[in-house]
Design a protein around this nucleic acid. Structure first.
Lengths: 206, 206
DNA sequence: AATTAATTTAAACGCTTGTTTAAAATTGTT
DNA sequence: AACAATTTTAAACAAGCGTTTAAATTAATT
């Protein structure tokens, strides 16, 4: 389906896959061109340089990643329901794109590669109203009074890491692919229970 | 202090720092040699190839990382105390070596670089008696009956990820270094409370 | 149909890569 | 002091890198 991709789009798409799988340093322009079924020179014809192509791809991936699931918070549901659905969708997204968290954190941590535009992302997240809703819930005593950065970190830790740690887990525990996937789906339940249990009903625990 | 390192050790040490900072693909043999204050040819004189030097360094780092904190479980303390101390020490270790989790997961996920020896690691962890202790505690109803893989994943997620996500957190939330460090220390408390609260006293919640 | 513009190609550019070589310097041994 | 073994060096190697060039091909315009 959809063979009607332009040369530029084919290269961008191939670059995304190759960059995510191997990292900026781990692949070559020729590899990207070959994956796109194109001549090497076309990479620079359309994108000037490997670096610039990477910047474009990275920013798109980061935005997709950060915004794809946060839309739940626009819905008219209880905060707890939204949180549950959010975690559910994070696991869904990561099941289709398990390499993205590692890709983003790896590339971001060797940041001298190029300067990334990220100004808009937090604003777009904020536009869903998550932050206000969380702050309000804190004032009402519905959820624990913790800095939003820490809440983000708690949720992201428990959603992203299980996918990032796949090779470590698989071989430390000698797991087959099926066994790992099984633990992953269990992990989703545990993580949801744990996070909801900790963040909500703060009076019972602290 | 301790200038009495042999050439071989100097290269190994420099290689460790450079590999952790930039990854296997992100650095060159010449860079490692320069960091060690040595000639390029010495790298291969002592270690045959960049790949083999990497393998040596990686295996040492992985073993250090996995075993450094698990020793707590040999002590004669309650399981909950050990768990608290373990998390405390994980955060301690990671404060000194914040780049190691990302290094390990990154390099492991592009595993074609070379085959790693990992046979001994799980056995060494097992030799502390953690696993038996956890299983016993589960039988006694002290902690939640969850596969040990998932328990490991819960703890590692909440300890490793906050350090791996530093660049993402710093710029998504426009945090200064001090602000980030502050959140990190708070995160340690939250993570401890959350994990202990979830894993122990399973009857109250499920 | 002729001409111009946009796309694609194969080949080459200079440079860096990991690795090797062979000579120089150092150390150890008799 | 003379010799042998080890360690270190500078230089070179082919191969691969990102990028550029200039010609060939295709598409668009007149």
């Amino acid at each position: 389906m959809s063979k009607e991709l332009s040369t530029e789009e084919k290269i961008r798409e191939a670059a995304k896959n190759v960059f995510i799988a191997k990292g900026f340093d781990g692949c070559t322009s020729r590899e990207i061109a070959k994956a796109a079924g194109m001549n090497v020179a076309l990479v620079n014809y359309y994108f000037c340089s490997k670096k610039q192509l990477f910047k474009l791809v990275f920013e798109a991936v980061l935005e997709d990643f950060m915004l794809s699931t946060v839309e739940v918070f626009r819905k008219n549901l209880s905060l707890e329901s939204k949180m549950r659905i959010f975690i559910e969708r994070e696991f869904e997204f990561l099941t289709s794109h398990p390499d993205i968290p590692r890709f983003i954190l790896s590339e971001l941590s060797r940041g001298d590669k190029c300067e990334f535009d990220h100004a808009g992302i937090l604003d777009k997240i904020a536009s869903t109203g998550v932050f206000e809703e969380l702050l309000e819930a804190q004032e009402k005593g519905v959820i624990r009074k913790i800095d939003l950065t820490n809440i983000m970190l708690l949720i992201m830790s428990n959603c992203h890491y299980p996918f990032m740690a796949k090779p470590l887990m698989k071989y430390l525990n000698n797991l087959s692919e099926e066994q790992y996937q099984e633990r992953l789906m269990l992990q989703k339940q545990y993580v949801t229970e744990m996070l909801i249990g900790y963040l909500f009903n703060p009076k019972t625990n602290s």
